[in-house]
């Protein structure tokens, strides 16, 4: 069955979401992944937005986290204070899985979504942290979406917007952050995880038809590829739900 890499990325992320997760969703593909999980195998997972919406019933895909579509049929419509407190609070924060994206990532999963070039005279300015830094600081697990390109998987970030494992195994503890950090990086080629001991990224699996060598060619730094497997392609029923139920207008796909 034919599928696009964007569909594959969405479904690979969706497979990581469980019924017992509160899913923090950002704009775009991350929302779609949560919607897909909810419709495919995790109907009880809770979709949660930094704008303050909890457990929205998404009959249509929102185009921003402040889209009125996230306000419909919620458990509560609050505000930003509620949303971030829920994540900073360890009682509820540990139930949250964050989904983030960025312009650059390093081997410890630290993210840049602010500038390319010098912060004080950037060649490219991006949106900035939004809630990204807050989520990365607070939640114990997160999934990061990236495009697999050399300029995005970098030796050194131009600006560190959101903390991953900082400089290694003790990085977060030394800085005063709660435990946790990113778990997964999902790209248009592969899935990466972080080593238990070193907290460095390693290749967990490649999409069908993509070799570990190809993945490495698209990164500035090298990662361990010895654990790589082939990730199963989307199943027909997954694709059907994603296309027909989650994003029929193909607004994100």
């Amino acid at each position: 069955m034919d599928y696009t890499l964007r569909e594959m990325m969405t479904l690979v992320a969706a497979r990581e979401i469980r019924n017992e997760d509160i899913v923090f969703c950002g704009t775009g593909i991350s929302m779609l992944a949560a919607m897909a999980a909810k419709n495919i195998h995790a109907p009880k997972c809770v979709m949660f937005f930094e704008t303050g919406a909890i457990d929205a019933k998404l009959e249509e895909i929102p185009l921003a986290v402040a889209d009125s579509r996230v306000m419909y049929h919620t458990s509560a419509n609050g505000g930003l204070l509620d949303a971030f407190a829920t994540m900073q609070n360890r009682i509820t924060g540990d139930l949250v899985i964050g989904i983030l994206g960025a312009a650059q990532i390093d081997k410890f999963g630290n993210l840049n979504s602010t500038v390319i070039g010098d912060y004080f005279s950037p060649t490219t300015r991006f949106s900035g942290s939004g809630g990204g830094c807050d989520v990365a600081s607070f939640v114990s697990r997160s999934i990061i979406f990236m495009q697999h390109e050399k300029r995005k998987f970098v030796q050194k970030l131009d600006y560190m917007t959101s903390p991953g494992h900082l400089d290694g195994p003790d990085g977060r503890a030394k800085a005063g952050l709660s435990a946790g950090g990113p778990q997964l990086v999902i790209t248009n080629m592969a899935m990466m995880r972080f080593d238990e001991d070193t907290k460095e990224m390693y290749l967990d699996g490649c999409y069908p038809g993509i070799s570990p060598a190809t993945v490495l060619e698209h990164m500035q730094f090298t990662v361990d590829i010895s654990r790589a497997r082939e990730i199963p392609p989307p199943a027909a029923h997954e694709l059907k739900i994603l296309r027909e139920k989650c994003d029929p207008q193909r607004l994100i796909l």
Binding site: F84, Q88, N110, T114, Y119, F120, S129, C133, D134, S137, F138, Y159, M160, T161, S162, P163, L166, G171, R172, K174, A175, G176, L177, S178
Partner: peptide, 15 residues
């Protein structure tokens, strides 16, 4: 107070 942004450039760099 908050625990957000510890260790990042949001703290290190001032616009």
């Amino acid at each position: 107070p908050t625990r957000s942004s510890l260790g990042t450039d949001i703290i290190a760099k001032w616009g």
